[in-house]
């Protein structure tokens, strides 16, 4: 017996997030899956991508024969500047974040709690040295924080939970979660279902979720 629904691919998730970003927003995309979102913003729709290392107006990855070795993003990958792009230093770049000038940040997650808490920087393994980068600054400073993540871990543990058990990156900062099977708003009453992939019922979705899902209302 097979399930009647199909999870979204990484590309489909990125396209789904991109659809909700209006023209004119300044957007910071986290390292990893969120980076894919920029590939799905249609040409001619001016959405300005910010990178923590000081790029305002980041373009896509260059073709191999057109790499500017001085132009990297926060993940230290080669990128391009769009027409109109600007470069600032690190303190100004994070001033844009902390000062609330970034309309949206999209990050990955280990866990998101129904109160909007996010855990995405450290596990409970103390042997590895901790590393945080700019994640806490983005949680505290961006106007909105959307999360892109799978509904469950590879072993089937829910990533949407009542309270995070991993160390927190930010408190009550997540406003929306895009998973590979559904979209949720995070409101004062917890996870509110916006949509699910076709064929996935709320009972089955609830089984994959570690907190109560509520309908929109």
């Amino acid at each position: 017996m097979g399930q009647s629904w199909k999870p979204l691919s990484r590309t489909e998730m990125a396209a789904r997030v991109a659809r909700d970003i209006p023209e004119g927003w300044y957007v910071n995309l986290g390292i990893g899956m969120p980076t894919l979102v920029s590939d799905h913003i249609p040409a001619g729709k001016d959405v300005i991508i910010h990178s923590e290392n000081g790029i305002v107006g980041m373009g896509p990855q260059p073709k191999p024969d057109a790499v500017n070795p001085w132009l990297v993003n926060a993940g230290k990958q080669y990128v391009t500047l769009v027409t109109g792009g600007a470069i600032v230093h690190h303190a100004d770049s994070f001033g844009m974040i902390r000062g609330g000038h970034i309309d949206l940040c999209v990050l990955g997650a280990f866990q998101v709690a129904e109160n909007g808490d996010l855990a995405n920087w450290a596990t409970l393994d103390d042997a590895m040295p901790p590393a945080v980068g700019g994640a806490m600054d983005l949680c505290a400073g961006a106007q909105r924080l959307w999360i892109m993540t799978d509904q469950t871990t590879k072993s089937g543990e829910p990533k949407l939970v009542e309270r995070c058990t991993y160390p927190l990156t930010g408190l009550a900062c997540v406003s929306r979660v895009y998973t590979n099977v559904a979209v949720f708003d995070v409101s004062v009453s917890g996870f509110e279902l916006v949509e699910a992939v076709p064929g996935l019922g709320i009972d089955e979705l609830q089984d994959m979720t570690g907190a109560t899902i509520r309908g929109k209302g």
Binding site: H90, F94, G134, D137
Partner: peptide, 19 residues
């Protein structure tokens, strides 16, 4: 070095470090 306890680490969020 970190695992052997031979170096001290002060971990700072990147924007806080810059500021």
């Amino acid at each position: 070095l970190y695992k052997k306890g031979e170096i001290e680490l002060e971990l700072v969020p990147q924007g806080t470090l810059a500021e």
